[in-house]
Nucleic acid binder design. Structure first.
Lengths: 120, 120
DNA sequence: TAATCGCTTCGTTAGTAGGCGAAGTGGCGG
DNA sequence: CCGCCACTTCGCCTACTAACGAAGCGATTA
C-alpha cells in the first residue's frame, strides 16, 4: 500500500508530472528541468527527490551533474504500470506538448545559459 | 492534465484507495463504507465525492440510499487505465485483504447495525 | 404532513505539502 | 588546495487537505 501511495502522491502534482513526461525521450539534468519548469533549484530538487523515492525516476552521476531518467522497472510492477498509464493519459496534453517544444530549446542552450538559474 | 491530476490526487489517499478497492466486487452504499473505513459519515461522504469528481466511481440512487460502484469507463481512457493499475498493484496488499474480509462482515449486518454510525 | 432516515454541506482545527532563499556538501578546475 | 559549480538540505511561510460535529436537505415512512 505504501509503495502505491508513494507513486500516486508523486503523480499528484502537476510540476512533477511535467518533469516525468519531459524524461520520456531521454535523460535530463536538474538545470534542464529548472529551466523547463521555471521554478527555484531547491524546489525542483525536492520534486525530483519525491519522484525518485517513489521509484519513478533513477539518477546517474556524471562529474558534478546528475542526470535523471525514467525508471526502467520490470513489466508488471506498479512503477512500470504507472509510467505506462501517465504517458498514455497525457500523450495529447497541451501543456506537455508545450513542454516538449521547450525541452528542445532548453537542451540546445549553452552551459552558461543553463547555469544562470543558480546565480540570480 | 487536470483530469489526470484529479485521478492521481483522488488515489493519493489511503482511505480513498481502500474505498475504491472495496467496490471491486460490487456496489456498496455509504453506510457500508463508513463501517469499513471507520470514519465519520461526513468524512467518507467527502472522500466518495472526490472519487466521483475524478470519474473513478459512479452512483446509483435507490430510495434514500446511494450505491457507489467503480466507473465502467471505456477501455483506453485514463479512468479505465487507473482502475486497472491500482487493482493490479494492490491485488496482494495486506490492508486490502483485511478490508475484503471486513467487507463480507459489513454486508451481512442488519440495517439497524449499519445505521448506528449516524446516531452516535 | 410530521417525523425520521441516509447523506451532504458548512465551519473549524490540526497536519501536510509546495514554494522560496540561504547555507551546506561534494566533485573539478585553476 | 582554494574556489567554483551543480545540487541538496534547512528554515520559514503560505496554502491546501483530512478530520470531526452540527446543521441542512431530499426522500420515505408513520
Amino acid at each position: 500500500m505504501q509503495d502505491v501511495l508513494a507513486i500516486t502522491k508523486a503523480l499528484a502534482d502537476s510540476n512533477r508530472v511535467r518533469a516525468l513526461m519531459a524524461l520520456r525521450e531521454g535523460e535530463l539534468c536538474l538545470c534542464h528541468l529548472i529551466h523547463l519548469l521555471e521554478l527555484a533549484p531547491s524546489t525542483v530538487s525536492k520534486h525530483m527527490s519525491i519522484l525518485q523515492q517513489a521509484g519513478l525516476v533513477e539518477t546517474r552521476k556524471e562529474g558534478r551533474w546528475i542526470h535523471y531518467r525514467q525508471a526502467d522497472a520490470p513489466a508488471g510492477s506498479p512503477v512500470h504500470g504507472a509510467l505506462q498509464w501517465v504517458q498514455e493519459a497525457l500523450a495529447d496534453d497541451a501543456q506537455i506538448q508545450k513542454d516538449d517544444a521547450r525541452r528542445e530549446a532548453v537542451c540546445c542552450q549553452s552551459r552558461e545559459e543553463l547555469a544562470e538559474c543558480y546565480r540570480n
